[in-house]
């Protein structure tokens, strides 16, 4: 393991170069470059290019790019009958999913934090949607939602909650809610894992101390659990917000934006414009609008994570 294998002294210039290359300050870059270069090429470049494309009209076939300024954005906000509806859907969809996923995740993680038998089994069952690709989730739920052969209608009619078959995904009144159920199903495991990890950092003694000091179940929840979950909770909420807002797969498979555009989300609108109508610049403009709306949650999330590290 000797480093003196080179007995012949290197020429002056090479010697200095070699010393410089093994310098402490440069070493990190040997490790980083293979990661950083692809990262820059594949995230920074597309991002900048995507923003640039939003100000152009781009033809996919002859690769003609014409700068059109803010034309796409003006067209989008003033002339496109779909845009405002899709934006509203996106907001309802995101807020609803984030709220419900968080509440379900909170209750589930609290229940899983109890030292009960079969806890491992229940944890596994709660996390299982994680391994299910969104496409498969969408297809399976599509069958469950089926008006004639679906399990949902059958079960609800058996209990007497509804008296006729409902086409959950085909009915304009229920389609958005039905797609939300599938997204919540897919996002719940993450919320459970995060909140459970947060709960497990709460020492049992704290609850005992609280109980001795006379705090009831609700009091302990309010003054011990909630503040301690604050940080993980924030991260879980921000991430769910970003993921839900960007979501594409399951809605595309479930409804494709229909019926009557009631489940049209911004991501679907952008996708259809780009790859069905080949309006690349216009589709990029929709993407840029999404990015602008996401800037706040992305900033908050990044700041939160960095703060935790430092």
């Amino acid at each position: 393991m000797s480093t003196k294998t080179l007995s012949v002294p290197l020429p002056e210039g090479l010697e200095r170069l070699s010393r410089r290359l093994s310098n402490r300050h440069i070493t990190p870059y040997y490790y980083l470059l293979p990661t950083v270069i692809p990262l820059l090429l594949l995230t920074v470049y597309p991002l900048l290019r995507g923003i640039y494309l939003a100000f152009t009209q781009y033809n996919l076939y002859n690769k003609d790019t014409t700068l059109v300024g803010t034309f796409n954005f003006i067209e989008l906000t003033t002339n496109d009958t779909l845009f405002w509806g899709a934006l509203a859907n996106n907001i309802i969809w995101t807020v609803g999913i984030v709220f419900i996923t968080y509440m379900l995740g909170l209750f589930t993680s609290i229940a899983l934090n109890e030292n009960i038998p079969l806890r491992g089994l229940f944890r596994g069952l709660a996390l299982i949607p994680w391994v299910c690709p969104a496409v498969v989730a969408a297809l399976t739920w599509r069958w469950i939602f089926d008006p004639h052969f679906g399990m949902l209608n059958y079960a609800l009619m058996e209990i007497g909650l509804i008296d006729r078959q409902i086409g959950w995904l085909g009915d304009k009144n229920t389609a958005l809610a039905a797609t939300m159920v599938v997204a919540i199903w897919k996002l719940l495991p993450f919320s459970v894992v995060m909140l459970l990890a947060g709960l497990q950092t709460v020492p049992e003694e704290l609850y005992e101390a609280g109980a001795i000091d006379g705090a009831g179940v609700l009091g302990r929840f309010r003054y011990i659990t909630v503040p301690l979950l604050n940080r993980v909770g924030k991260i879980a909420i921000l991430l769910t917000t970003i993921w839900a807002f960007n979501h594409f797969d399951s809605v595309y498979v479930l409804t494709g934006g229909g019926p009557g555009d009631t489940t049209m989300l911004l991501s679907i609108m952008s996708y259809l414009n780009a790859f069905r109508f080949f309006k690349i610049g216009y589709a990029s403009a929709v993407g840029v609008v999404m990015l602008i709306l996401l800037l706040l949650p992305i900033t908050l999330y990044t700041r939160q994570v960095l703060e935790d590290v430092e």
Binding site: P46, N246, S267, A274, I280, G287, I298
Partner: peptide, 28 residues
Amino acid sequence: RSLGVWLIAGQMFPGVLMLIPLFVTLTR
């Protein structure tokens, strides 16, 4: 630090916004 920020934020951008330019570039 800036690399850290980029790593954290890098996964958050709208998929479609990245898809379009990547598709254009990969086509080329």
